Computed example of a mutant assay.
Amino acid sequence: MNRSYLLGLSAIGVLLTTSPMLLAVPGMVQPAIAQRVVEVTPPSNSTNVSPTAFISGQFDNAGNIETNSVRIFVNNQDVTSQSSITSNFFTYRPTQNLPPGVNQVRVEYRTNNGEQRTLGWSFSVQGQPIQLTSVTTNAGVASLNTGSTLTVTLNGTPGLQASVLLIQDGRNVRELPATETSSGVYRVNYTVQSGDRSGDVAVVGRLRRQTQSVYSVVAQPIAFNTSIGTPPGGNTGGNTGGNTGGNTGGNTGGNTAELQPRFTNYQDGGRVGRNGFTLNGQTRPNARVQVNILGSATVLGVPVGGEVIVDREFTADANGRFEVQVPPPRVAVPGLRYRIRAAAIEGNQVSPTTEIILRQQIDR
């Protein structure tokens, strides 16, 4: 084999192993390090770059560049006319903030030998941190019935994509787009529908910019109650003859306080076992009792969803007693709590809702 050829191969091998700069392939976009361009700013693949950073690079093969052929592109926008270019150096200072996320630079030029070359590199700009300072609703402690309007307001960084997530049963998610009504204030209104499921609903606000998102959970879930409506005409006529002479005639026309169910074997804040439990209650004889039990986990004191464990109607016996068998949740969750709601119905009369919260026993 020709000795000069071998020496040539050896020289190329030394060049490739000792030099960080490689010859450009004409017409091909390659990292800046492979283009005999050095000292690029911001550095290739750098992160958290300021949105006001200037962009520059140095031609390593100085004097071999046709200066008038150099074109600079930032995110595919030609910024050559706003750049300073010499045979040794180029620089561009953005006239407005660089967008957050990945930014790309491309430089095209010709050598004095007429070869067209292209180089490129990228870096990541850290935008203004997204802040979601508050998420509030117009819902109080009372349930929202069919036709009620839920208003959710988000406060945070202006000019972003905003939405509200309504999460029920820990898995059913409805996303509602929010509108920025003033700088940094986003709002959405939702009317409770008859087809909505009764039960607790976790409200989560979200602000998003490209791939960045921040979330905030309303501390107290709201309750949809679409299964118990206000009877037509209210309670008009419901007490006809009912209170005359006190409680004559037993519970005829009775009193709402007696109809409202109460739990006899557990009090609010009580502890239950891990393998389910029995809930005993008292109401009027033969009244129908609608019971909804939601098991939910708590993270840092904030309920983030849960599982409907019981959602059905029971009928009290002749003495007004009723019993609910509560099974364990399908998935064991540490710190589980049971939110229990019950309302009784007799004829056209509906009692106020009784609510207690029981917590799963903690093993010691």
Rank of each mutant, 00 (worst) to 15 (best):
R209I: 07
S81M: 12
N172E: 15
E346L: 08
A287L: 02
G127F: 01
G253S: 03
S163H: 08
G270L: 01
R106S: 10
R174C: 04
R364V: 10
D196G: 08
S4E: 15
S50D: 15
N243C: 05
G57T: 09
S4H: 10
T146H: 09
S46M: 08
Q35V: 05
V308Q: 14
P221G: 01
T244I: 14
T181H: 02
A62H: 06
S10P: 00
L15A: 13
Q349L: 11
V79M: 07
I293R: 07
R288E: 09
P99R: 06
E313L: 01
G246C: 11
E313D: 10
I340F: 11
P177Y: 04
S143L: 02
T151W: 07
I33Q: 14
V192I: 14
T86R: 02
N265P: 04
D196E: 08
Q116Y: 15
V201T: 12
N275G: 06
S44T: 15
G250T: 05
T244F: 15
V324N: 00
R93T: 15
S44C: 14
I293N: 05
E323V: 14
Q260Y: 00
A162T: 09
S183Y: 06
V152S: 04
I33R: 14
V102R: 15
N88K: 14
Y190G: 08
N319L: 11
L132D: 02
Q267E: 07
V291S: 00
S19E: 12
G156E: 04
Q82D: 12
N239R: 06
P129D: 10
Q58D: 03
P94A: 07
P20K: 05
G276T: 08
P177A: 10
V38K: 12
W121D: 02
Q96M: 09
S194P: 13
T252S: 08
N348S: 12
R341I: 01
M21N: 09
V272N: 01
A342K: 09
R337V: 03
L98A: 12
T18E: 13
Q30V: 06
T52M: 09
Q220A: 09
S122L: 07
G205K: 03
L144K: 00
